[in-house]
Design a protein around this nucleic acid. Structure first.
Lengths: 225, 225
DNA sequence: TCGTATACTTGATCTATCTCAAGTATTGAG
DNA sequence: CTCAATACTTGAGATAGATCAAGTATACGA
């Protein structure tokens, strides 16, 4: 499993094997339940094995903001390492399972595997970059561009996992997509209808077929997530 | 200098001294010039010694998005560690100086100093959290809340550096603030005027006096930056 | 199987913010 | 010191997206 997380980022296969031994514990999270809550102790990060998660922040006035949707092979919990306490919560969008990567053991192993620390830095850097691009999307793109970018990004990540990039099931509601993209659920719904009318996608509830990837990519400015 | 970066995050003083030896090289960046450009090799991160920087991303259609403003004691370059190439650029807002923290030497030293890796992770985690909060601000707050949050955040960071939290000079233009907050320069200008009319601040060009911090904090939802 | 709750769609209206425009203030070069 | 360039302010009008509202489809528990 860790191969999927680590090898694409250039870690030698034999070192991944050693890393695999570190990762014994697994946690199942039923749909709707939290992997960790705001305030929980953060002494590990988690690799998603199957299922999907959302991470969300709460502000002082109680508003929730979704900061990411996680697919298998991606890492959760990287933003909780500052205060040793999670500053956000991770909720399962469907029945899911993560493997636990304890931080103190990671440090011990890091003394022996020279490529581990740069590897872990790359993972964190990737998350920084991802959220910078999210901020760019929220700050600079119009609603249709944001949704196009969202769909293209999801499609690309599913393709990496070996799933069809043009035909997939959304694990999140219109409201969750809207929250993530800084739009209302009505706007998301209208955009889906409009994209369908324009022949870019076919959509029925949470089932999406992408018909014109090229145009979606052009709309999105070819990136972000 | 590194003390300012590291000690507040809980690193022992004697280890900071060792770290200091790692950091010999310094770079001066004149106002308006880049510390690094998009595509430059990323083999180091940088601690800002004095001055101020902005970091910005460029999307496929050429639009620039500012993702952060840096003050002395803060770290630049954490988002370039994925591909060993910088994916953004860092520009000096005034004549500035950074110290260079080479990554390969950091790894070597990391073998000897047990607290170094967790320390570095905390720095990266902080940046992840910061950009999540920026995304939250862009997605959920209204213009006046965003600007209030921006001012409160700047004030707090200046206070940490020993400067007045209620009286400071903005190093960035209205346009740069607007870009960062997902607003136009006209909106920023109007908001400054309105805040002044309402007695929250006094502002003349880039000189800002905060008169009613309490209300600004309430407006902002007490956080973000 | 039915009935209720939840998720989604679509329309009408409203409003925060943008855009366009004209002006003033400040800064910097020569 | 003067002029030009840049930065900022303010107004009027346009619009993307929000809000309010009503209805339809789907999922789920009894």
């Amino acid at each position: 499993m860790l191969s999927e997380i680590c090898l694409p980022l250039g870690m030698p296969r034999n070192e991944v094997a050693q890393l695999d031994e570190l990762v014994q514990e697994r946690i199942r999270i039923p749909k709707g339940k939290a992997l960790f809550q705001l305030g929980d102790k953060a002494d590990a990060v988690y690799g998603l094995r199957f299922g999907s998660l959302k991470t969300q922040l709460e502000d002082a006035s109680g508003h929730m903001q979704i900061t990411g949707f996680l697919l298998p092979g991606e890492i959760v919990g990287l933003d909780g390492l500052l205060e040793n306490t999670h500053v956000c919560q991770a909720i399962a969008l469907e029945d899911s399972e993560v493997c636990v990567i304890p931080l103190n053991e990671l440090d011990i192993l890091g003394q022996k595997l020279p490529s581990l620390q740069p590897q872990f830095r790359r993972l964190m850097s990737k998350e920084i970059n991802r959220s910078h691009r999210l901020a760019m999307a929220l700050g600079a793109l119009r609603s249709e561009q944001r949704l196009a970018a969202f769909l293209v990004n999801l499609s690309q990540r599913l393709a990496i996992l070996g799933y069809s990039p043009v035909e997939f099931i959304l694990r999140m509601s219109r409201e969750e997509i809207g929250n993530y993209l800084g739009l209302t659920l009505e706007t998301i719904s209208r955009l889906f209808s409009r994209f369908a009318r324009e022949g870019l996608i076919r959509v029925q509830q949470r089932e999406v077929h992408i018909l014109d990837m090229r145009t979606l990519q052009e709309l999105s400015g070819n990136d972000c997530g």
